[in-house]
Amino acid sequence: MHCSQNPPAEIRQRLSAIRTFLLDLDGTVYLGEQLFPWSLEFLARLQRLGKEFIFVTNNSSQNARYYVAKLARLGVAARPEQIFTSGEATIYYLRKHRFGQEICCIGTPALEEEFREAGFVLTPRQPAAVVLGFDLTLTYEKVRLACDLVRNGVPFIATHPDLNCPTPEGPIPDCGAMASLITAATGVTPKVIGKPNPEMVEALCAKFGLEPESVAMVGDRLYTDIAMGRQAGITTILVLSGETQPQDLAESPHQPDLIADHLGKIAKWLD
């Protein structure tokens, strides 16, 4: 259903039960370095209604401080605790499953810093896990080290499955492509944490004490944002301001609960 007109009463009622909105960033709140004109109105509406919002991203090459600074440049005030990355979800997963504090992190300096601040010791010597992120500093030596460890039975975890990361110059290889390289060399498939996997929502709910029935995921990708929300049992809202086009819905197994042209339309529903 493409909700291009005012939604019926049951949709308004459904949204009234939502206390926390999980918001994808690129394609939902902004596009590249351009804030969508309706984003500030939407966020202000949530604040007036006493509802919370958390920005959720698969990009593990940057930490929360980076996104706070980027949002500030675009005119959006956000606190570090309102940013949740796949790196932070991976930290929750490692702690929940008691992997131990020593890990081998194949990632950017920002991701390494995030793990150190969480109390992990980064080491190539007998680590409890190999954690692969979106590594813009990837080298052959890092790949060789990861393959040696994984081949010898060290658990292999990837922060997220994206094959490509969009940039203004075009797509560049992302974490999923890097994981495929290690898998091809070792025959081992990683445990993947980020969207579309429900571990991301589980970690969020645990961190913030959220009840799934009061949470909604808002995003522009069917196979990540909507797929994750459906698997996690939360309300899903697709916005058509980014990647997904209306014709993509016909062939997708991941169907949202609601569809809006953009965040500004959702703001009107909440009015």
Rank of each mutant, 00 (worst) to 15 (best):
A267T: 03
G194M: 06
L149Y: 04
A250I: 10
K195Y: 07
L138Y: 03
G219N: 03
E251T: 14
A216E: 05
A78I: 11
L263T: 05
L40A: 14
V143G: 05
T139K: 08
V215S: 02
Q255D: 11
A89P: 00
Q47E: 13
P37R: 10
F42C: 06
R14D: 06
E81W: 07
D135R: 02
T235H: 03
G32C: 11
A110Q: 14
L31F: 09
T137H: 12
V143N: 04
E102V: 08
A129V: 04
A9F: 04
T183S: 14
E81A: 11
Q126F: 06
G32L: 11
L111V: 09
A118W: 09
T28K: 03
A184F: 08
V215K: 00
R151V: 00
R221N: 11
G187D: 08
A17I: 01
S180Q: 14
P155G: 08
V68T: 15
G75I: 04
D174E: 13
A146T: 00
L138H: 06
Q13A: 13
L111N: 08
L258G: 00
R98H: 13
L136Y: 04
L222A: 05
F134W: 08
R12F: 02
T85R: 06
L249P: 03
Q34S: 14
T235Y: 02
K142G: 04
T108Y: 11
D174V: 07
F42P: 01
A203R: 06
A17F: 04
L22C: 09
E202V: 08
F115I: 07
I106G: 00
L258F: 13
R144P: 00
Y140W: 11
T139P: 00
D220K: 06
V239K: 02
E169R: 15
P212D: 10
T137L: 08
K70P: 04
R45W: 02
C147A: 15
V131D: 05
C104E: 02
L71H: 12
R151P: 00
R116A: 14
S39G: 09
Q34D: 12
K207Q: 13
A158Y: 00
M228G: 03
A177D: 02
L132V: 13
W269L: 12
V76Q: 10
I237E: 01
F120N: 01
A9I: 09
G229K: 05
Y92P: 00
A158L: 09
E113I: 02
A44S: 13
L40F: 02
C147S: 13
L136W: 04
K195I: 07
S241K: 09
G27C: 05
Y92Q: 12
V56D: 01
D248T: 12
I91Q: 08
V150I: 15
F84K: 00
H262N: 15
A158V: 09
A146V: 01
H254C: 11
R230L: 12
F120E: 01
L132A: 11
L136C: 07
C147G: 01
C205R: 07
R230S: 09
V76D: 09
G133A: 11
D24M: 07
D261G: 15
R65I: 07
A203Y: 04
I226E: 07
V29H: 01
V56Y: 01
S4Y: 13
L46R: 02
A72E: 12
R98A: 13
C205G: 06
L149Q: 08
I54E: 04
K265T: 14
E112K: 14
E117F: 05
T90N: 08
L258I: 12
